[in-house]
Design a protein around this nucleic acid. Sequence first.
DNA 1: GACTAACCGAGACGGTACGTCCCGTCTTAAG
DNA 2: CTTAAGACGGGACGTACCGTCTCGGTTAGTC
Lengths: 193, 193, 193, 193
Amino acid sequence: MGRKKSEQCRLAILDAARSVMEERGYLDMSIEEVACRAKAGKQTVYRHFGSKPRLALEAFVAKASRLELPDTGSLAGDLGSYLATLVEVMNSPHKRSMLGGLLAEIQGDSELGDAFRQGVIEAKRTALRTVFQRGIARGEVAPDADLEVLVDLVYGPVWYRMLISGGRLDPSFAETLADTVVLAARRAMEPVG
Amino acid sequence: MGRKKSEQCRLAILDAARSVMEERGYLDMSIEEVACRAKAGKQTVYRHFGSKPRLALEAFVAKASRLELPDTGSLAGDLGSYLATLVEVMNSPHKRSMLGGLLAEIQGDSELGDAFRQGVIEAKRTALRTVFQRGIARGEVAPDADLEVLVDLVYGPVWYRMLISGGRLDPSFAETLADTVVLAARRAMEPVG
Amino acid sequence: MGRKKSEQCRLAILDAARSVMEERGYLDMSIEEVACRAKAGKQTVYRHFGSKPRLALEAFVAKASRLELPDTGSLAGDLGSYLATLVEVMNSPHKRSMLGGLLAEIQGDSELGDAFRQGVIEAKRTALRTVFQRGIARGEVAPDADLEVLVDLVYGPVWYRMLISGGRLDPSFAETLADTVVLAARRAMEPVG
Amino acid sequence: MGRKKSEQCRLAILDAARSVMEERGYLDMSIEEVACRAKAGKQTVYRHFGSKPRLALEAFVAKASRLELPDTGSLAGDLGSYLATLVEVMNSPHKRSMLGGLLAEIQGDSELGDAFRQGVIEAKRTALRTVFQRGIARGEVAPDADLEVLVDLVYGPVWYRMLISGGRLDPSFAETLADTVVLAARRAMEPVG
DNA sequence: GACTAACCGAGACGGTACGTCCCGTCTTAAG
DNA sequence: CTTAAGACGGGACGTACCGTCTCGGTTAGTC
């Protein structure tokens, strides 16, 4: 029984969380400020989200721009188009701060980690897997290629530059990376040498 | 005049920091506990390291096993050997926690970020760059290849699996990744088609 | 319709309030726990009693053992008998806690204070006043005695020992106090000296 | 070792506590506001006083006007003078609120209760005991009188009026009470009847 | 060898945020 | 139409750490 949890209230909190994170970054976001901005009590925040990283995760997922899967007719076209968009989206200080903070929390909280990987990572991997499978059908990708590694080959360098090496995330990087992955995917078909 | 900062004391603090991080993870490490374990005053910790992420960074760098650069005579051999070791070293919960935490702090603190990239990232990249340059000399790598992207292609997937996707970091992954990068590096030499 | 249920519900709340207070004391009694034990909603508690001190007051008055006014034929007898019972009743940790808590609330809430004095204090004072008036009729009490002060002389020391000094509340105290008050009451009749 | 607790800081907190209590009463005094007014951290308040009732007790004791013990040469004079002053001092809303709140806390916290009785109550009782002993020496008080009850006879009615019955605390009450106690004390000497 | 400035441990300081509890009000569903 | 259940905005709790600031006590280099 009892009163129902208000959806309106939930959204106000998510909004507040988002705006605080964009202003201060994940680490300096406090539940107290989020509650205050959402004109909610702290308890209400905890009732809805349970903890700071959960809140951040939901706020992140809520606004995660759903990247559309391109279908240009060739692996090179698909990858080039997809990576161009991906790199542009990832090249944002807000995202860097939010994702950096979440990564810290994820290590050692496996429940949160699973939720993060399920909600944020896996969907994107599935999209790319489809792209490579279409490549196999077209004969552009070796049929025995390790799709997981190919997917890693795309996402790995992007996340690595964004969060770790601080390398440039520009169109030229997207292009070079796409080209290289295309070559790597194809080559597995041919005899080495 | 006066007394010098004690090296012994500095080491005790680094040791304590390391052990706390291994037990509780980066986020739950407090300066107070580190000071207490090192039988040092908090002030002393701040005098030597200035802040928590700096301390963690130094603790990390201090114990960072200096990976030796193999020279087997072939790119495939070098990469295979290097990646096998790298993947083994990275497959550690402690490292995950420390690095995740550092990443969170790095976003938005550019001074710290620079130190991290300088002390942890760049050295490793340089090593790999050398490997690829030897490959060029041997004719195993296209002379006009983008070395930075090739290096990203190695480190990106490893960090990505470690911190983000949670994918396996096992010898078979190392091998597949090494093989794929070797192919990608070589292919740039040949006409596409 | 549900008029009957209402009274039943009121009693359940009073019962619950009493039992919580006996277990935890007045200060640590929360409306929430009372409602829960009474299987009532918080709103219902507020509808019936309005506030915690009101509830406590009603719970206290409800169970207040109605002390019978003795009529032994002499002031000494009446007072001795009455004080013996009073002291016994007051010598209870539950009562101490409830009354201490109520006293705290009463200061600065004059409406509650009036209700408390009206419901708990005045009835007892009236009883004692009657005893002294019978004493005047019998010639045992000076006719010009200040009855209010005489009544204070009985209740004051009892409450004072119970709540403030922590002095013993035993039969011997009751006896000595009764004797002393009898003397004080009579003496006003006679010339000093 | 370590830095010493600052006396200055302790006094600032006591001062703040006093002023908050005078404005809001004991129950509505919050540690947070006290700390804020004293420009101290909450932790500092807890370090020095440990809990709200302890703080209130110390604040109360600190400002407790040390009533001087009169020595007029007669029991009637001593009691009249002492009670006149006592009643005047007790007739204060601040005191009512502070003492009411403390009484609530005292019930069920025997350590605090002991401190309260030791610091606030016992000193005053000792003073009065001395007065009565001088009365015995002068032949104004029965030598076998129960001094404890005589002392109760003075303080009881005063506290009772202040905190419980709400009766007037004016000079005429002080006078009547003093006279009555003098009579009660003397009478024990003489045969009843 | 005695001085003395800097360092050391310890820990108190003014703060900020935590996550919890309870307040008194409001909303919903069931009887 | 009244209940119970319980979510709501709010406020204080007592705790944990933050980074800074005294404290004595302990080393080293200079005089």
